[in-house]
């Protein structure tokens, strides 16, 4: 099995996170996450390695930063792993791989999501935007420029995620209040503690975008 099951079932379960999915299926189904409930149902209680070997890969199409890419992935690979290690888009960072820090935040159909909690197969047919996708050629986008001006980072490792969260926030709420800004980035940890400058950068970015 593998390729023939790489249809769009996964993509149809839009909005489902890896954590939610694993919970729904029980941990035994991790290896079978490829096509979700239908697959698990048809195979009854067989252990995952019977259903799909770890060696099997499936071909999926990802729509990243405006371009289409076909990649061979193991169904258990996260979007984060595929972005960073397979495609080489390392602007998206890994801080925990378990949905706690937000370093891996990307936009999936315009909404900030944790790429570590999203399986690559789930992200098919969605529009994925990463930090690199906010660039205008070699020029920084408005949120990025605001982060530079306000010095909204120290080590810079949480920064791509913070920028994506602010970007996502401003798309939905162009004139956010301070509370909205804080809630907007509350899913993004910054161990360096640059929060105050991140708040300022979000304000600055909002003004830039409105102009």
């Amino acid at each position: 099995m593998g390729a023939q099951n790489s249809d769009n079932n996964a993509a149809k379960r839009e909005g489902m996170t890896r954590r939610g999915f694993i919970q729904a299926m029980g941990t035994g189904a991790v290896g079978a996450s490829l096509s979700g409930a239908a697959l698990a149902a048809s195979h009854g209680n067989e252990p995952p390695e019977k259903i799909l070997s770890a060696k099997d890969t499936v071909k999926i199409h990802l729509h990243i930063n405006g371009a289409d890419r076909a990649v061979l992935v193991e169904p258990r690979w996260t979007l984060l792993y595929v972005l960073r290690e397979v495609i080489g888009l390392t602007g998206t960072k890994e801080g925990c791989s378990r949905g706690e820090c937000g370093a891996c935040t990307v936009l999936v159909d315009g909404i900030p999501r944790y790429a570590c909690m999203t399986l690559a197969v789930e992200a098919q047919n969605c529009h994925i935007t990463t930090l690199e996708g906010l660039m205008q050629g070699e020029e920084l986008g408005p949120v990025q420029t605001a982060f530079v001006e306000e010095d909204a980072f120290q080590c810079g490792y949480c920064t791509p995620g913070q920028i994506m969260s602010v970007h996502g926030l401003l798309e939905k709420t162009p004139r956010p209040s301070m509370d909205e800004i804080r809630i907007g980035v509350s899913g993004n940890l910054c161990r360096c503690g640059a929060y105050n400058n991140i708040f300022r950068a979000a304000r600055n970015a909002a003004e830039r975008k409105i102009k």
Partner: peptide
């Protein structure tokens, strides 16, 4: 602003990981 700010906010900075 930092001399390496561009690298850090554009994704151009390559961290060991």
């Amino acid at each position: 602003p930092r001399v390496d700010a561009y690298e850090r906010v554009s994704g151009a900075a390559v961290y060991p990981s």
